[in-house]
Nucleic acid binder design. Structure first.
Lengths: 230, 230
DNA sequence: AAATAAAAAAATATCGACATTTTTGACTTT
DNA sequence: AAAGTCAAAAATGTCGATATTTTTTTATTT
């Protein structure tokens, strides 16, 4: 996974990225406690480094800091998922409208290339393997980023990224849930075509359907899980 | 977020809120260094508490952490101000559209009350005193929050708040700059009326003009300051 | 036996100290 | 005198230890 790169990163950054990955990939149960001592042992660093990393996760909305009661993984809920999804649709449309207005030939090339790579990565709709799932996630992100890449706003990009991360976390909650028939590739192809045709209204429809379809599946998974456990 | 509480706050939170206030109120020069040692002395707490507080500011976008070179106050630039302003207009319109759709009688009452308090707080357009300026800032924020308060999305609210804070910081950069004639109260009254009439398109126009007018003044102040200093 | 209270254990928030790295400032060289 | 060099000073990132608070376990009472 996201390990250290060429330059020597600070201990804080290392822990930050590792725990962040654990939370986003749902290797840590939402709402569960983040024991400082355990992380100190696991990463072989001091408490300071761990606490600083956790503090940054708090501000990012991935962890909670309860007064005198330590840190917890940010919880999930169906209400939050719904709110997140609808807000994300609005935000995405804002970025896409701009991108479709300002996108040049290079942008079109980026969109085409990203779609091509994404569609090739799921050749026979077999994504059960852990490795290929991760790869697909990266290409999926790249495709959606390509669509919005001509918007040219650091602020919109930043918020989009936060919401994408959160959405991915919810999506991973439902990986083992039995899913109905869905042609995700067709959805992406339609998005690509509408983008190249600069059809903002169609784009809005497609994005809303695309995001809501995923949210629907996750909601079902959460409901069935809630009634099964405890 | 109003995390005020009667119980004893942690040292980290105390430092976090204090430094956050210093940055947002421009008592600390953008881009300047945040010495851990100085803050330890000033607040009488340990390095851990200070570093944790600064780490949270980093994730909030109010400070920067440079590898092995300590923390700095987040810099400002005319480009960033422009980006921020345009992104904020889009975001605000999204929230306002929802709010105007869903707003009920209680919402109308909130908007009216907030406008009334705001308009009364600048009786003779004399806002030079530091104390009243701060008060006006609170009422100003309250008014804009009231307008969007029926949107009912925690995520939109969170992003709006981040952008409001950032915009306020820029505004405070220009408090001593000579400003042309501007009837801010009239702008707010127009916003209130358009809101109560549920006129989304008008609202969009007014919000864009309102935000851009402030950004224009700040840009001038930054330009004249850049050519004067150093 | 259930509920309550006290004691033990664990975990947290905070602190001061240390090794490394960066910055500062005096000194030398062209 | 300007530029480069090198040692002193300051600041950073990291660490282990300690006092408080929370959680768990054990004992007591109704």
């Amino acid at each position: 996974m996201a390990t250290t790169s060429t330059t020597a990163k600070s201990q804080t950054l290392m822990v930050f990225e590792a725990v962040r990955g654990d939370i986003l990939d749902v290797r840590m149960e939402p709402g569960s406690r983040l024991h400082v001592g355990s992380l100190v042992e696991r990463f072989g660093v001091s408490q300071s480094a761990v606490r600083e990393a956790l503090s940054r996760l708090v501000a990012d909305g991935l962890a909670l800091a309860l007064n005198q009661k330590g840190f917890r993984v940010a919880p999930v809920s169906i209400d939050d998922l719904h709110d997140l999804t609808e807000a994300r649709i609005e935000m995405e449309v804002v970025a896409l409208r701009r991108s479709l207005e300002k996108g040049d030939a290079a942008w079109e090339a980026r969109v085409l290339a990203a779609y091509h790579e994404l569609s090739r990565s799921t050749p026979v709709a077999v994504e059960k393997l852990h490795g290929t799932m991760l790869l697909w996630g990266v290409l999926h992100r790249r495709f959606h980023n390509a669509l919005a890449s001509a918007a040219g706003s650091d602020w919109l990009e930043r918020f989009r990224e936060v919401m994408f991360d959160q959405s991915e976390r919810y999506r991973k909650l439902s990986v083992s849930h039995p899913t109905g028939p869905r042609d995700v590739d067709a959805e992406h192809r339609a998005l690509m075509q509408a983008a190249l045709e600069r059809d903002v209204d169609r784009m809005h429809q497609l994005v809303a359907a695309h995001f809501r379809a995923t949210a629907e599946i996750v909601t079902e998974a959460m409901q069935s899980r809630a009634s099964a456990v405890k």
